[in-house]
Amino acid sequence: MIAGAVAMWKALPIAQRRMIVLLAAAIGLANIAQPYPDLAPLQHGPTVALVLTAPWLLRRWPLSTSSIGCIWLFLLLHTVGARWIYSYVPYDDWARALSGHDISSLFGMTRNGYDRLVHFGFGALLTLPIAEAARRHGGLPLRWSLAFAFAAIGLGSALYEIFEWLLTIMAAGETADYYNGQQGDVWDAQKDMAAAQVGSALALIALLRRRG
């Protein structure tokens, strides 16, 4: 069993192996002096599962290093957000330390917008790997694979928002509120889904221009 796991690991391109290792290191760093330890397993658990199963998944359904890079970047964005349960990512503190100005004032933001960035990244960064998987493993032609990816982003966004809604119903009120990151915005779910679709649409335009 161990020999098989080692063989699967060695069969991956070295760039993909490095990305898996770097993501695992990022998850470890994100949990040092974890500010929200009660929510950390819920936030980081799926990413840890992906890291552990990545060699098998990529052996079974290989993707190009470009697609894996997109997934890796999205998961890094998520890992940063997960450390501060999204609603409290201190990007304004970082911006003030670097430039003396904060991002919220610059753009007139009244809420922490990091979660919206990650929803946008979900669409912008995962459209390529979904389209490649549909073409390579599903046999779809190029344009149909792109259409499938755009639809899959919409479906994935909607299912995630439904999951958050169910969590809000089942979990303790404060825990659910911290996890779903609504921050008092009753239209948060719709805006998140729109951000993902805009990201996917921009990715499709870039892909079509590159291939056109």
Score class of each variant (00 low, 15 high):
69 G>F: 01
195 A>D: 08
152 A>N: 10
99 S>V: 08
38 D>T: 13
193 M>K: 01
118 V>A: 09
31 N>E: 05
71 I>S: 00
127 T>E: 08
112 N>G: 12
141 P>G: 15
125 L>G: 00
156 G>D: 04
2 I>F: 15
47 T>C: 11
145 S>A: 12
12 L>K: 01
102 D>N: 11
166 L>G: 05
148 F>Y: 13
195 A>R: 02
36 Y>C: 04
52 L>M: 15
39 L>C: 09
92 D>N: 02
164 E>Q: 06
174 E>T: 12
41 P>S: 08
177 D>T: 10
103 I>V: 09
133 A>R: 06
159 L>Y: 12
21 V>M: 09
74 F>D: 02
101 H>C: 14
188 D>G: 06
204 L>E: 03
153 I>V: 12
66 S>Y: 13
80 V>D: 00
114 Y>Q: 11
138 G>R: 11
92 D>Y: 02
88 Y>T: 10
193 M>Q: 02
96 R>A: 08
155 L>G: 14
193 M>R: 00
63 L>Y: 01
195 A>C: 12
76 L>Y: 05
133 A>D: 10
211 R>W: 10
70 C>G: 09
126 L>I: 04
18 R>V: 14
37 P>L: 14
212 G>A: 15
53 T>K: 04
89 V>K: 01
192 D>Y: 06
199 G>Y: 03
198 V>P: 01
59 R>I: 00
108 G>K: 13
116 R>P: 07
66 S>E: 11
154 G>Y: 00
32 I>Y: 12
86 Y>H: 04
30 A>G: 01
52 L>T: 12
61 W>Y: 08
57 L>F: 10
59 R>N: 05
37 P>W: 14
207 L>A: 03
170 M>A: 10
113 G>H: 03
71 I>Y: 00
109 M>N: 08
129 P>R: 12
195 A>P: 06
172 A>V: 09
148 F>A: 12
141 P>F: 13
25 A>Y: 08
92 D>G: 02
63 L>K: 00
104 S>Q: 12
68 I>Y: 01
103 I>H: 04
25 A>V: 14
60 R>Q: 08
84 W>F: 07
190 Q>A: 13
15 A>F: 06
75 L>P: 00
133 A>V: 07
57 L>H: 09
80 V>Q: 01
12 L>W: 00
195 A>I: 05
104 S>I: 12
147 A>P: 07
210 R>Q: 12
134 A>G: 10
58 L>A: 04
86 Y>W: 04
143 R>V: 15
210 R>G: 15
166 L>E: 13
24 A>I: 05
77 L>F: 07
205 I>D: 03
140 L>I: 11
88 Y>D: 09
65 T>F: 03
106 L>F: 11
159 L>C: 14
